[in-house]
Design a protein around this nucleic acid. Structure first.
Lengths: 322, 322
DNA sequence: ATGAAAGCGCTAACAG
DNA sequence: CTGTTAGCGCTTTCAT
């Protein structure tokens, strides 16, 4: 790996001039030419590690997500990537797997690698981003906000969406509407369930008996759906709080030949890669990619010195129903 | 951000001792204690940038994939991650989007960030990994091998799988078996198609008329399937060379109400997140996660100094059929 | 516009 | 076992 010293020697200039050429500062045309030629000849690539050490910040942002195998998060990641790339930033994607320890490890790394900022969909509401903020590293929470801190946030209306989907099931005549939601300490799981509970408040359904905390994954959706169908008085419909659990729930309904509309189904989030359109299904569509793009823009603003007060952006989600 | 100098001052030792404590070298118990206490008090985190600059290599590996929204690659990524994490390495995931320029940019970054190594599913067979290898950075190709270089590779038997799936369709009585494959310069697309062609060689089908080069994505599968069904003599079956295009093809078959077995379907790769099991479908199952784990192990071996000759590992894939 | 020189924070000889 | 010291490669004053 050639260094700026070698390039400088070959071009007959000082290292500082080489640095200036590569950073777009004023250098006389003939020297620029000499430097570029020498750099090409030596296949010189600036060493980003040295640059980062010197400048105290890199042009890399971290995106921490809880489940890289969930298409919702990969679409969100695409949104982040597209915006960041266009601004000359690279994105490193970190999969926390919903695990606190892994998440913390990645946050540590983002600090000790001097990354420019972090976009995080927190593993749960115990996530601490204070350490980053205190050291002046911009952080944007996306999809879910960590409870602990005042931090820029981009999310959808979870409670409203959950309530709307549930009301739609009610309007279609279902009465014993169950709820399958995510982990107990995840904001989206709590809020979406709260929306369901709010919509069901007028009825006499035993909310605890007809709701399940699960894991936002296919297997969890399967298990919860199976359990609910085994109740003495099974639900006649179910509100499922994310895309993957809806896949699991639907698998069970297919296997038991109790497809919608026999059992009503409302999903918070689109079914990924669906082939057979489930006609009698209510869906809250989420702007996954747009969440990512918006979060990235906010982060880039902060990185370039924006010091406005903390803000929360709530993107709207649309509902479709048969 | 505290530095080792501040920790050293507070603990009453030299910076070297602090470094030694954090790198597990021999230091007397009392000094270890003093250093740890000072470090805690100052919330000291070692600066990885400085460490990397000094050591000339980091404990980060890059994983470059062509489509982060394809569940096959995210499963592969999980495999890489699990193995790498266990060995104390972090993985940064880079999405090349099948785009040469982006891919090259990430490879440059991996070099200039002094990353320990790279695992790459190449955008296409023009990808150059020589530059990395020449500079002593280990590289492992996964899923697809760049044509240019002698490089460790982990893949499946694409041609064999394609041939087996096609033969299975033949055995089930289909005759005009079409093929939908990926981009023309991608090894997996070429080889899977070659397997199909090999199996069809004994028949009198016009192979060019009944095959389509596409893009390994849902939309491409849809378009190709639609086109094929509009032929004067439409195929009675189709071999689809990846999971996402199979989703697209199946969507078209569902919409046109010509589901298997009316039109035979064989897919190279499982349908992601399927709810309705397509009963009359032939599937070549791929060990996505295992590909990632194997590639990661090979890379870690190389990083720790393994200098054996270049090797290729071919993982087996299994076929299921009604 | 250009060069000299001082670090960014850490690690690895080398001495002791 | 411990401290001193010289860089890793780059950027950025400060002079010129």
């Amino acid at each position: 790996m050639a260094t700026i010293y070698e390039v400088a020697a070959m071009a007959g200039v000082s290292p500082a001039t080489v640095s200036r050429v590569f950073n777009g500062q004023r250098v006389s045309p003939e020297r620029v030419k000499a430097v570029r030629e020498a750099a090409d000849a030596l296949a010189f690539t600036p060493n980003r590690v040295a640059r980062t050490l010197r400048r105290q910040n890199s042009e890399v942002v971290a995106l921490v997500i809880p489940d890289i195998e969930n298409p919702f998060f990969t679409a969100l990641a695409r949104g982040v990537e597209d915006v960041a790339q266009a601004a000359g930033f690279s994105v490193v994607l970190c999969n926390s797997d919903g695990d606190h320890a892994k998440e913390e490890r990645y946050l540590d790394i983002s600090l000790s690698e001097n990354m420019a900022g972090v976009i995080i969909a927190a593993a749960d509401d115990h996530t601490h981003v204070r350490r980053l903020l205190d050291r002046g590293r911009p952080v944007v929470a996306v999809d879910r906000g960590p409870a602990d801190a005042q931090v820029d946030t981009v999310r959808v209306d979870n409670r409203g969406g959950g309530a709307a989907a549930t009301r739609e099931l009610l309007a279609r005549g279902y009465r014993r509407i169950a709820c399958i939601t995510g982990p107990e300490h995840v904001e989206t799981a709590i809020e979406r369930r709260a929306g369901w509970a709010q919509a069901m408040a007028g009825t006499d359904l035993d909310l605890d008996a007809y709701s399940r905390w699960s894991d936002f994954r296919v297997a969890g959706g399967r298990a919860a759906m199976t359990e609910l169908l085994e109740l003495p008085e099974p639900p006649d419909a179910v509100f499922v709080a994310n895309n993957l659990m809806s896949v699991g729930a639907l698998q069970v309904l297919v296997e038991q030949r109790r497809l919608p509309p026999e059992i009503g189904l409302a999903s918070f989030g689109d079914l990924p890669f669906s082939t057979f359109a489930v006609t009698d299904m209510t869906v809250v569509h989420l702007p996954a990619r747009n969440l990512g793009m918006t979060a990235a823009r906010m982060l880039l603003d902060r990185i370039s010195g924006d010091t406005e007060p903390v803000r929360t952006v709530v993107l709207s989600n649309s509902l479709t129903s048969p």
